[in-house]
């Protein structure tokens, strides 16, 4: 079974720095590739085709949650996909705001 790759980052930010993170993601979507790297993991995503895009906003007891979720299927011609063609893989990157 192919190893699951994950990237996770949790931090406290303010509006100004949140925009920097969103800009980085925006830039990645525009270029068709977003790289996530940490000491343990390197994850290259290539958003393509149709992308399921979910925005969830919630306000309860003074606490607000805004979830952005993007979901797509890996391009069938991508080399990573071809390594093990039977394994359907999806990438899910979510960002709490």
């Amino acid at each position: 079974m192919r190893r699951e790759k994950r990237f996770f980052l949790e931090s406290l930010q303010d509006r100004e720095t949140i925009c920097k993170y969103l800009d980085a993601l925006k830039e990645g979507f525009q270029q068709g590739e977003i790289h996530f790297s940490s000491k343990e993991e390197l994850l290259n995503l290539e958003p393509c085709g149709l992308i399921k895009f979910i925005i969830k906003a919630r306000k309860k007891d003074g606490e607000i949650t805004l979830d952005l979720s993007f979901k797509w299927a890996e391009d069938e011609s991508s080399p990573e996909y071809l390594e093990e063609p039977c394994d359907y893989k999806q990438n899910n990157v979510s960002k709490d705001g």
Binding site: L9, I34, H35, S38, K39
Partner: peptide, 10 residues
């Protein structure tokens, strides 16, 4: 303890 992290150009 954390190392450098990259998200696209950031």
């Amino acid at each position: 303890d954390f190392s450098e992290v990259g998200i696209g150009s950031l």
